[in-house]
Amino acid sequence: MPARIVLQQADITRALTRISHEILESNRGPDNLVILGIPTRGVVLADRIGGLLREISGTLVPVGALDVTLYRDDLGRNPTRAPSPTQVPPGGIDGKTVVLVDDVLYSGRTIRAALDALGSIGRPSIVRLATLIDRGHRELPIRPDFVGKNLPSSQSERINVHLQEIDGDEYVSIEESGS
């Protein structure tokens, strides 16, 4: 089965804009927010959400990157991964409302690792989760607060997220893996 496009560039932009509004709504404004993207594509999405929050609220919201590679529980089951840099905004995360941003939410194991990673750089007062795609099949009690699109999928399918900054084109597609 060929890859089927489920989100075009404009859909992705609309989803991120809605997520940004929802973040401001649930936080009652831009104060105390920190947006942290999970590498690789979560960092790009976090940057865009940061830009949108600024456009909407007129306030600069700190944006950073949180690498979770060294906190994963599957390091012994997969080929060695190179970690990515973690960038904590200058104000730190202590007492802040941290919004984690990732591209696809699947088993929830990445987010578990992210929560551990957060714990070693500080103590946020609230942690929320934003994801562009929620494809289901959770293996841990983790649930997103802000979702771009719910995409029911079978575990044999693969979701591809392409973003302009990394891939040179932009869409979300779903395909049968191995095809």
């Binding site: 906190y71 970690p83 714990g119 070693s120 750089i121």
Partner: peptide, 20 residues
């Protein structure tokens, strides 16, 4: 050397330990 850069960042953290 690049992985070592990431490891060096850990030394600046509040918790200087990774569960890796």
């Amino acid at each position: 050397l690049d992985v070592a850069e990431d490891m060096a960042d850990v030394a600046d953290r509040e918790v200087k330990k990774l569960p890796t």
